[in-house]
């Protein structure tokens, strides 16, 4: 069987969901105050996107056209309920940090968008590759924003606590000179604006050549 690697890589750079198609903004800006929350959110999106693309492409010939949106929403909502219960049981700290943004994965445009635009009309293998690529692209975008916001806003990088290591890396100089606004709401919007301008600029430069 031929594996179509293009479906995997397109989500990471060329069609990056965060910076190029600009989908799923609410969680991207809402949970990017700490790197650990960004990683938890990325894991949730990876799980839901992978299984929703898999199930929807497997069932694409059985779901009647007239009710396809409600059918997709039920599949996605069930997967989100599963990930909510798993996170509540095994990583309660991440669960409470993500708060309302975790159930809101249901209405994340990336997931319904990929179901509608890709999984509904492609084979299972291609859909799985597409889901993994898109989820990695989302994770990279979200983590990039979280690293910049946490570094500038509080001078730390928070990962998960293991043994004696409490999970917080303190960056010298930045830790003593935090720019508090970066970890608050306005910082997220300003940073998103500058990053989007940067990605538009590099994209336009490539096209000009």
């Amino acid at each position: 069987m031929k594996i179509n690697w293009k479906e995997l890589t397109k989500g990471i750079f060329k069609e990056n969901p965060v910076f190029v198609i600009v989908l799923g903004l609410c969680p991207t800006l809402g949970v990017s105050t700490q790197v650990s929350n960004a990683l938890g959110m990325s894991a949730g999106v990876l799980f839901v996107l992978l299984f929703s693309n898999l199930l929807i492409s497997a069932l694409r010939n059985f779901i009647p056209d007239s009710i396809h949106i409600p059918a997709y929403v039920v599949i996605i909502a069930s997967l989100v309920t599963i990930i909510e219960m798993v996170m509540h049981a095994f990583v309660p700290a991440v669960y409470s940090a993500l708060g309302v943004y975790l159930p809101l994965i249901v209405v994340n445009c990336i997931i319904l968008g990929r179901a509608e635009a890709f999984a509904a009309r492609n084979t299972v293998l291609d859909s799985v590759l597409d889901a993994i690529g898109m989820a990695i692209g989302f994770a990279l975008g979200l983590t990039l924003i979280a690293v910049i916001r946490e570094l500038l806003g509080s001078g730390t990088i928070t990962l998960f606590a293991v043994g004696n290591f409490d999970g917080v890396i303190r960056i010298p100089w930045f830790y003593n000179n935090p720019i508090r606004v970066m970890s608050l709401a306005p910082g997220a919007l300003l940073l998103m604006g500058y990053l989007k301008a940067f990605f538009d600029w590099t994209g336009a430069r490539k096209k000009d050549r």
Partner: peptide, 19 residues
């Protein structure tokens, strides 16, 4: 500026409003 037209400048304006 060209790179800021459309969405980027909208985000930055929203950031200033949030401020």
């Amino acid at each position: 500026r060209r790179a800021f037209r459309g969405m980027p400048i909208a985000f930055i304006s929203a950031g200033l409003m949030a401020l």
